[in-house]
């Protein structure tokens, strides 16, 4: 355990003194704020018009739900930048020899890196929470649904991080790790498209792997055990395979 905390502390130190984490947080803040501001502006405009027509306006459906979904897409773009260096850099700079000859378990290193990245993800979700706060200050959103959405994003992001860590353990090149991770995330994101035109088993199996359809339930405030298990199993599989990969690399 102490080995895990040592690795986690070191990763956090690196986040604090190198630009990569700041870039990720800054870009996330910028992009998510842009989404939020635009959705809010459209909603406000519709509200003003709605005063005349008596339309059916709902801040959850029109602002928070699409916002959470778009933030999921933003994570898809940004999290590869967090995970791509995690193992690739250690392998490239020779510090892997330090980690592997230290009296700590393989899992200590993997979990240390994973939870450090998860900490960074939580910073991003705190920024997201701020948007919920803004809406709650001026309106009455469904806070329970918003909390479930944030949990969904945490699980989605965690799954991305575990998969990214696995891919990073396969290469010494950060660029290769980054590109493969990004493309794989993209594939996982669009995997449910075949369901739209095919009712075959294959389409449904592939569709089930889509991270999007599972996120949709969360953003609508539906907490389904099946979705939680889906993301958790991705996380466990990613971390476990990383451990196997490190073992076989010897």
């Amino acid at each position: 355990m102490s080995g895990m905390f040592a690795v986690m502390r070191k990763e956090w130190k690196t986040y604090l003194i190198t630009p990569a984490a700041y870039v990720v947080v800054a870009l996330f803040a910028f992009v998510s704020a842009f989404f939020f501001y635009n959705m809010l502006a459209v909603f406000v405009m519709q509200s003003l018009n709605g005063g005349f027509g008596g339309g059916n306006l709902n801040v959850d459906v029109q602002v928070l739900q699409p916002l959470m979904f778009d933030i999921g897409i933003t994570l898809l773009f940004l999290l590869p930048m967090v995970t791509m260096r995690q193992y690739a850099e250690e392998a490239n700079s020779g510090t892997m020899e330090l980690l592997k000859t230290a009296p700590i378990r393989r899992m200590d290193v993997i979990l240390g890196k994973f939870f450090a990245a998860l900490g960074l993800l939580i910073v991003l979700l705190i920024i997201t929470g701020f948007y919920v706060g803004v809406v709650a200050h001026y309106g009455a959103p469904d806070l329970r649904a918003a909390a479930i959405s944030l949990l969904g994003l945490l699980l989605l992001g965690g799954a991305f991080l575990a998969i990214g860590l696995l891919i990073s353990s396969f290469t010494k090149s950060q660029v290769v790790a980054g590109v493969i991770t990004f493309v794989l995330f993209l594939v996982l994101w669009i995997a449910d498209w075949p369901v739209a035109y095919s009712s075959g088993t294959a389409a449904h199996v592939i569709g089930y792997l889509s991270v999007t359809s599972h996120l949709q339930n969360f953003t609508q405030g539906i907490l389904d055990l099946k979705d939680v298990i889906f993301y958790l199993s991705l996380i466990v599989a990613g971390l476990f395979l990383t451990a196997r990969r490190m073992e076989l690399a010897e």
Binding site: K13, T14, I17, S93, G94, T95, M96, E97, L98, T101
Partner: peptide, 13 residues
Amino acid sequence: GYLPEVPPVYPEL
């Protein structure tokens, strides 16, 4: 205690 061929240091620390 082990010193590998390339010192296993983190340049940013």
